[in-house]
Design a binder for these strands. Structure first.
Length: 113
DNA sequence: TGATTGACCAACT
DNA sequence: CAGTTGGCCAATC
């Protein structure tokens, strides 16, 4: 069915983020469609727990590399722990060397519809 | 049906 | 540099 929900599109992109890399809400939004609202990506992450597949929501942060969604994980520091498990350093709720670890969907993906 | 709300962002002051 | 503003648009009330 070519009429997938917005959430499912976001979840698909989020699922493509490689281990040890991160991206931003806005990057996903602009990849899905240039005018799409980054806020909606946040909504999709908020609802990502309802997906049947597991979504690496911890690999999605805001444009400055800050863990703005940390409070939506079970424990306030769970998001940081998940990132550190992948070798990503987090200091003061911000990803260290975010610019280098940033993974832009538009540079690696071709939206399949 | 209309108003409000966001895990956001860019532009502006 | 910090703070404000408008835009974005699906979900929720």
């Amino acid at each position: 069915m070519h009429d997938q929900n917005f959430f499912e599109k976001v979840w698909w992109v989020a699922g493509q983020i490689p281990y040890g890399r991160v991206t931003s809400y806005g990057a996903i939004a602009s990849f899905l469609s240039a005018g799409s609202a980054a806020r909606m990506v946040g909504w999709a992450m908020n609802a990502s727990h309802t997906s049947r597949i597991q979504i690496p929501a911890h690999r999605v942060v805001n444009r400055s590399g800050m863990l703005t969604g940390k409070h939506h994980f079970g424990h306030p520091d769970l998001m940081q722990q998940l990132l550190e498990n992948e070798g990503i350093s987090v200091v003061n709720d911000r990803i260290v060397d975010f610019k280098r670890l940033f993974w832009n969907p538009a540079d690696h993906l071709v939206f399949p519809f």
